[in-house]
Write a protein that binds this DNA or RNA. Structure first.
Lengths: 258, 258
DNA sequence: CGACCAATACCACCAGAGTGGTATTTTGAG
DNA sequence: CTCAAAATACCACTCTGGTGGTATTGGTCG
């Protein structure tokens, strides 16, 4: 299939469905991807997976089960989507928090384990919504190269506006509010008969997203050393003693409701 | 209910079922436990959960789903069971590998997240089988105290031989062979078109069980520094770069089959 | 008002993971 | 037998998390 045939199909696509059919076979082949997914983000609501192509059954199940409820909250693309104004194509590793890879706990948990690399774009639709499309490569495969990124960036010039156009007229059918992570941590703590401060909840949320103490400090405009203090008191209140345990609480409790 | 009533019921119990009914209500109350379980271990086969009382629904489901297939392989009680000759009552934290708690990834994954403490016994039945009973306390609760341990140890003098007696005449109905962890890692690596050495597979298995490099060295009779080398080459071959990613591979791939 | 707590900041120390080396011995396949 | 790979050992370094302190400020509640 020719590149211009592909772009022609994209141009005439009038629905998410036809868009999916136009791009999935072509992109997955052109970039040797082992997964491809498109997600409609909302700043304060649960996201909607527009379509996903994940041949590996186990991974697909994990993704379906966990991403829409909780996983998206630790997806760097989700946060990135509301930071860019127009649209942006990028590699996951370029926008991920500094400790994202070593705290693989999460990506593992949501079925991305073997995605050694992810290349995609985010595009803002309006103040509260955005759309995201990405392709993943599995372990055993090479990471995306510079020319992959460049080439994808060029496609994104067409794909991003087109997908936005399709979605802009489409009313959201799911309007389930999603509590932000810090709120969820706060609620979880109270369910455990302890009370964490607002700051501590914020820190907890950023930790599980993969930020180091230092990075959290920069983000909150406080010292990384202060973050360590919050960390300590947080752990003490939740009677845990490590980051992994915090992940565990999130997965088993914070994710349980909402 | 009186302690001697309890012991009387235990004494006359003639089946796993009646044993369960005799002990679960009493022990869970007497020790303020939030979970109680009994497992029949086999050195080379999948274990059989004799009974389990886990009121929390989420935890129960996680446990049911993952423990019997894979989780038991990283359960310190499982390994302990085949090290003691007769029987032994102990705290989980006393027999757990040194990095077991901080690499909570696993306990989280198998539904033990909130078990801040676990008290139980293991009793050998014959060369290849053993039985294990334990109670867990959740987060938010105190850990078991010395007098809890002492008291439980006294009960175990009756419970362990009794449970062994019940099981000794009971033929195993499940005879599903379970590949040891190192073998599974080896197979997983080959499925990924790479070949890890025997030593590397051993190291991988010990890592996910929660041992530090130093502890692995002591266990294998080699230097902890050598273990670090194995670790490095292992990570390189699997194209990962951290322990958490190794956990992820185990959970999503090594556990998939077998 | 005083007691208390949250939030801030900073210091020092340790353990462990991860990474970059070098070098020797053992072992197994060709 | 030879050569390459595996296994062993050791060194040095950085980064981070986790833990133990101290101290100041500002707000809240009894």
């Amino acid at each position: 299939m020719d590149e211009y045939d592909f772009l022609g199909d994209v141009a005439v696509a009038g629905s998410v469905d036809s868009f999916d059919r136009a791009i999935t076979p072509f992109l997955s082949q052109a970039f040797h991807a082992k997964s491809l997914l498109a997600i409609h983000f909302h700043r304060t609501r649960l996201p909607k997976v527009l379509f996903r192509w994940i041949p590996d059954k186990t991974l697909r199940q994990l993704f379906d089960k966990r991403y829409e409820k909780l996983g998206f909250m630790v997806d760097p693309f989700f946060h990135r989507a509301f930071l860019v104004q127009d649209w942006e194509a990028c590699l996951l590793r370029d926008i991920a928090p500094d400790r994202f890879e070593s705290s693989e706990y999460f990506t593992n948990y949501f079925g991305d384990t073997n995605m050694v690399d992810e290349l995609g774009f985010v595009a803002r639709i309006d103040n509260d919504t955005a759309v995201h499309l990405s392709m993943g490569r599995n372990q055993g495969q090479r990471r995306f190269r510079t020319n992959d990124v460049v080439r994808f960036g060029q496609f994104a010039k067409i794909l991003a506006p087109k997908l936005r156009q399709i979605l802009i007229n489409q009313p959201a059918d799911d309007v389930v509010e999603a509590q932000p992570l810090d709120r969820r941590f706060h609620a979880m703590a109270q369910a455990r008969h302890t009370n964490i401060s607002i700051r501590e909840a914020e820190v907890a949320a950023l930790i599980v997203q993969g930020h180091s103490s230092r990075a959290i400090g920069l983000k909150l405009g406080i010292s990384g050393l202060t973050v360590k203090v919050h960390r300590r008191t947080l752990y003490k209140k939740l009677s845990i003693s490590s980051q992994n345990e915090l992940f565990g609480l999130l997965v088993n409790y914070v994710g349980a409701d909402a």
